[in-house]
């Protein structure tokens, strides 16, 4: 695996959680650094330059959102929030502050690894740009504006294509409704919020095997959508 030896900083004030993450991540070949509070996290990030940060929101000295904001002032190191806070507003706030992804505790290790790979993949490919995206039977060629499913070309409306393009460019990452609306329509809320849902529904009908059980475009309730990778 190309990710072998990557250094992950786990920021959590609960020893049991740090311990369990260290054990699990070590078996995958990652090096785990630990911080029990926000200031420690900032110091370790500056000194040891981890490749990715797992950050808890409820830290004893400062809020995780604040830590994210301070980190984002000088580094693009990917941040995945791991928190028990499950309100949509918390997730949106963390994503807006610059976090790359959000996972609610308790989570399965499989889910965490998928998010980790998604984030890493984006951070590794950033700049170079990968013109062809493939997930399962779906292929999206951004250079040719071509979308195929099982080798068959699919006709998308310009709006549907725009939405799919943003999702592909951020594959694996959750995109907030507001973010997608801003990129596709350039602003607005009420009318576009409806248009977004309707377009996603139509898009699913065209690219999903079973639109009732979507496996590519995943809804993050109250937050936004995510294009799933690693099928």
């Amino acid at each position: 695996m190309t990710e072998d030896g990557l250094r992950i900083l786990v920021v959590d004030d609960e020893r049991a959680i740090r311990r369990f993450l260290r054990a699990s991540l070590s078996t995958h070949g990652y090096t785990v650094l630990e911080a029990a509070n926000g200031s420690e996290a900032l110091a370790i990030t500056a000194e040891q330059r981890p490749d990715i940060i797992f950050l808890d929101l409820g830290l004893p000295d400062m809020d995780g959102i604040q830590v994210t904001q301070q980190l984002r002032e000088w580094t693009d190191t990917p941040i995945i929030i791991l928190s028990v806070r499950d309100r949509e507003s918390d997730k949106i706030q963390a994503l807006d502050a610059g976090a790359d992804d959000y996972l609610t505790k308790p989570f399965g290790m499989g889910e965490l690894m998928a998010r980790l790979r998604g984030v890493l993949r984006r951070s590794l490919q950033s700049g170079t740009g990968e013109p062809v995206f493939t997930a399962g039977s779906l292929t999206v060629d951004l250079a040719c504006r071509q979308v195929t499913k099982d080798g068959q070309e699919i006709n998308l409306t310009p709006t549907e294509y725009d939405i799919l393009k943003i999702l592909v460019q951020n594959a694996g990452k959750v995109l907030t409704h507001q973010h997608i609306i801003l990129k596709v329509w350039g602003g607005g809320y009420a009318e576009e919020a409806h248009l977004l849902r309707v377009n996603i529904s139509n898009l699913r009908r065209k690219i999903e095997a079973d639109p009732g059980r979507p496996e590519l475009i995943i809804t993050e309730p109250g937050v936004g959508y995510r294009l799933r990778i690693q099928l």
């Binding site: 949509e88 409704h177 409806h194 849902r197 309707v198 996603i200 979507p214 809804t219 109250g222």
Partner: peptide
Amino acid sequence: SLEPCDLEDLAG
């Protein structure tokens, strides 16, 4: 926190 939702999406 209300948002418009497709019932098919909800069920999914």
